[in-house]
């Protein structure tokens, strides 16, 4: 009986070892391809969030990680920094809107050196299809409402959905989602005004 159980354990163990070996080999074989694709996707996303021709460096490699409640997360968030001949020219801040209808909405927020918003993109969300997912550029142009907005020319009360007295459209049947995104963008833009120098201080 004892030896039988031992034998079963050994067989189970060797099947597990073979499985792990296969996965490790696949992982090693696909790692570079996955990394390249991720890098390419990231760069394609970032390029829209910096002012065109405003930088000479590679922002996807010039990053800093910061933890701040304004970024909506307890974990460090990555900030991509653009520099023109070494002079800071803009940043893309990754942030989270923690109060979406179905949890976190991950955002990339592009800002220039004046603190004006170049653009915003949603990178990850779990919002209701057909209702809340219009924040995604592939579903609607809503997110473009942030393009070119500046804290210098707007007031805090503008940064709300129309239902709450602000200037952003809400979606039919979904107010929580756009409200969460507007709040997060405003929070990050205000934070950036104060922290700008620290972000580029290296």
């Amino acid at each position: 009986m004892k030896s039988n159980e031992l034998k079963q354990g050994l067989i189970l163990g060797s099947v597990a070892t073979i499985s792990i070996a296969i996965i490790v080999m696949t992982y090693l074989g696909t790692r570079d391809a996955i990394r390249t694709t991720e890098q390419r996707e990231l760069e394609a996303k970032l390029i829209e969030l910096f002012e065109p021709q405003s930088y000479t460096n590679q922002p996807s490699r010039d990053t800093i990680e910061l933890t701040d409640s304004a970024l909506g997360s307890q974990t460090p968030k990555i900030i991509y920094r653009a520099r023109n001949q070494g002079v800071p020219s803009g940043a893309v801040v990754s942030a989270t809107a923690p109060d979406g209808y179905n949890g976190n909405i991950d955002l990339l927020i592009g800002l220039n050196m004046d603190g004006d918003i170049v653009g915003v993109r949603v990178t990850n969300h779990m919002e209701t299809p057909g209702l809340g997912d219009d924040i995604d550029l592939s579903r609607s142009d809503w997110i473009r409402a942030f393009d070119g907005l500046s804290l210098r020319t707007t007031q805090a009360y503008d940064w709300k959905v129309k239902k709450d007295g602000g200037q952003f459209d809400q979606f039919t049947g979904a107010t929580i989602t756009p409200r969460a995104v507007v709040n997060a963008v405003y929070r990050v833009a205000s934070w950036y005004q104060i922290e700008k120098d620290n972000i580029f201080a290296n």
């Binding site: 189970l12 499985s19 996965i23 696949t26 696909t30 694709t37 996707e41």
Partner: peptide, 23 residues
């Protein structure tokens, strides 16, 4: 448990391959 191992391995391999070449 062995079936589960085999299935999980298959799925992981498919997942990695999809991630690498069909992003």
């Amino acid at each position: 448990p062995m079936y589960v191992l085999i299935i999980a391995t298959t799925v992981t391999v498919i997942e990695l391959v999809t991630q690498a070449w069909l992003p």
